[in-house]
Deep mutational scan, measured.
Amino acid sequence: MDVFMKGLSKAKEGVVAAAEKTKQGVAEAAGKTKEGVLYVGSKTKEGVVHGVATVAEKTKEQVTNVGGAVVTGVTAVAQKTVEGAGSIAAATGFVKKDQLGKNEEGAPQEGILEDMPVDPDNEAYEMPSEEGYQDYEPEA
């Protein structure tokens, strides 16, 4: 019985440690998101679009440190934060509304985080759909 109880105690310690790591990862992701939003706020009209992409990228980098179902929630929060940063930029006159959601080359930025393969159960990952990809044929 002692062996059984000791095993359960060790398992509990492992769960607590994993929860603490997840909590730490979420806190880091939130900190990076805040950094990115402050970065966007300090940019001029020309830099705002690039700044919004930076927020998304920093958040995406930190999301990889967070495991399990938390990833889905962090990704949703990050996307809403990026959308909010863009709205703030438009409201303050840093950028025109028609410039939001495009990178410096004018290509749409939507789907940055949505296409990231995420499995809350950590069982399997699927690649994003290939609808947006084109076949590449090298020139002879």
Rank of each mutant, 00 (worst) to 15 (best):
D2G: 01
D2H: 14
V3R: 14
V3M: 07
F4G: 00
F4S: 00
M5I: 01
K6T: 03
L8K: 00
K10E: 01
K10T: 06
A11H: 01
A11T: 08
E13T: 10
E13A: 05
V15A: 02
A17H: 01
A17C: 12
A18K: 03
E20M: 07
E20W: 07
E20R: 03
Q24Y: 12
Q24A: 02
V26C: 04
V26W: 08
E28C: 06
E28Q: 03
A29L: 12
A29E: 00
A29K: 06
A30H: 00
G31F: 14
T33A: 10
E35W: 13
G36E: 04
G36W: 15
V37Q: 00
L38V: 10
L38Q: 02
L38W: 10
Y39E: 02
V40F: 12
S42C: 14
K43T: 03
T44I: 06
K45Q: 13
K45W: 13
G47K: 08
G47S: 14
G47H: 10
V48L: 07
V48S: 02
V49W: 12
H50R: 14
G51Q: 02
G51T: 10
A53M: 11
V55D: 01
A56E: 01
A56K: 04
E57S: 02
E57Q: 12
K58Y: 14
K58E: 03
E61D: 06
E61W: 05
Q62R: 14
N65D: 02
V66P: 02
G68D: 00
G68N: 14
A69P: 04
V70I: 15
T72E: 15
G73T: 15
G73C: 15
V74A: 07
T75A: 10
T75H: 03
A76E: 07
A76D: 08
V77T: 03
K80G: 05
K80C: 08
V82K: 10
E83T: 13
G84V: 04
A85Y: 14
S87E: 01
S87L: 07
I88N: 01
A89D: 03
A89C: 09
A90N: 10
A90D: 02
T92L: 14
T92N: 03
T92S: 10
G93C: 10
G93I: 11
G93M: 13
F94L: 10
K96H: 13
D98N: 12
D98H: 07
Q99L: 03
Q99K: 12
Q99E: 08
Q99C: 10
Q99W: 10
Q99P: 13
L100K: 05
L100S: 07
G101T: 07
K102Q: 09
K102L: 05
N103P: 04
E105S: 10
E105R: 05
E105W: 11
G106P: 08
P108A: 12
I112M: 09
L113I: 09
L113N: 10
M116W: 05
M116T: 05
V118R: 12
V118G: 10
P120N: 07
D121K: 09
N122H: 05
N122Q: 08
N122V: 06
E123S: 11
E123P: 03
A124Y: 06
A124G: 12
A124I: 08
S129P: 08
E131F: 06
G132Q: 11
D135F: 05
E137T: 06
E137M: 11
P138I: 07
E139L: 15
A140H: 06
A140D: 09
